[in-house]
Amino acid sequence: MKILGSAITPERAWHNRREFLAALAAAAAGSALPGGARAAPVMPVQLIERLRYSRNERYSTTEPATAYADVTSYNNFYEFGTDKSDPAERADRLRPRPWSVVVDGECAAPGRLALEDLLRPHALEERVYRLRCVEAWSMVVPWIGFPLGDLLRRFQPTSRAQYVEFTTLHDPEQMPGQRVPVLDWPYVEGLRIDEAMHPLTLVAVGLYGRVLPNQNGAPLRLVVPWKYGFKSCKSIVRIRFSERQPVTSWKRSAPREYGFYANVNPAVDHPRWSQKRERRIGAGSLSGRQATLPFNGYGDEVAALYRGMDLARFF
């Protein structure tokens, strides 16, 4: 299925957002969003055109999805601030259009692609994935996207491409959290090439059937569902194939606490908190924790990638 650039990002929604919000605030803001009104300015869903996609049942969980309001108001996206509410409050400064991505490193066909050209060949699908944060909370998110492997193959990685490095936009103007050196900006993440090529690894451009909200990593982000959330690099501007393991941001910041692999693993605790259980996010819920599954429940698909590896050492 072909998708037009205009289907990805309706111009009026981005440029006239404030006017639309003002005009439709009363009707739109709270009533249509599951989970009730949020204090954070979440874009009313009816202002965003629906994406065209098919649903991938095979890779979708049947667990109930976390409410749209919660998925878009409770975010770890330090580029906009370290509070969970900062991204929803400040991500309107991000301009996800026009956007381009540089692909370079160990590949035969490097280049800089405009977002439209990058997305054009790919059919979008919906996958409902569990998302497990390293902070021991979790969500269930209906992402819209396509397999990362399909994108990477277009650039013909060479045999030297053992790893793939992803870089988030670095622009303190658009991302005010980058004015504070809580991490060594820009944010860098990485995957081993077989992890990147795995059919579960997704490039997401939307959620809940709509274009990805800025606070969730617009215009395109990774979703690697068997790893802790910080591995899923947001607002990507660069993809680099490399022979060496990339130096990832959190590992650089605290190597004892965050590893390169960061596979969800209840048997390996974070030095400062237990990873055995997790809390499902949900406004109004005072429920306790549930058991965390190895590889976030995707062990059947991905455990083979790590056969013979000591996962306590390569955490």
Binding site: G35, G36, A37, R38, A39, T66, A67, A69, D70, S73, Y74, K84, S85, W137, R279, I281, G282, A283, G284, S285, L286
Partner: peptide
Amino acid sequence: PAWVDLGANPVE
């Protein structure tokens, strides 16, 4: 909870 918003993770 509809009137006083404790956010997406009330326990935290």
